[in-house]
Amino acid sequence: MSHAVHGEIDLEVVRELVSHLTFSDHQEAQELILAALQEINEHFGWVSPEAAEIVADHLGTTVNRIYGLLTFYADFRTEPRGKHFMLLCHGMSCYVLGSQNLVQDLQDRYGIADGQTTADGELTVQVVNGCLGVCDRAPIVKLDDDFHGNLTPDSLNDAIQRAIAARRANGSPPHGNSSVRAG
């Protein structure tokens, strides 16, 4: 899963990641552009211009083409994430059980909408249009590595505050046990 390294992108790591993507001709190289960007996005939480340039050089294409992709596919980010990253499911189970209230509450309480990061750099939210596949616990979010289900605006806020407090307490990047907490 994501290593949630916010901010800096170690270009040596990027070179290492793309070096595994080998190809036998230019067609295959083009088929690997998205894969390369996905690996970088997964690893660092975003793709920087320098990282995009490494991909373009390795696969024989241009940075412009890379930005055409980064701005089309919703999973990519072109700015660093906050210290915590949250996927908020807005699929249909989540919608019919109130995810719109969660979206609204994030706006009211934290001032963030889809794709945005709080002013203090603590939290980035990405609203997922598909379905996270845990529909029986809707509405649900995945905050860092943990799922939180059956949410109300208040229980979501508690979950966010607990995650921030836990990170500050042990001073380490957030990571958890990937299980649904009650609220």
């Binding site: 083009q30 088929e31 998205l34 996905q38 919703a74 999973d75 249009n129 598909g130």
Partner: peptide, 23 residues
Amino acid sequence: RTGGGAYICGEGSALMYSIMGVR
């Protein structure tokens, strides 16, 4: 090959463009 979170890439011709590394 894996997708990037764009629903339209489920449409047959869009999916093939996505495989070919374009929008």
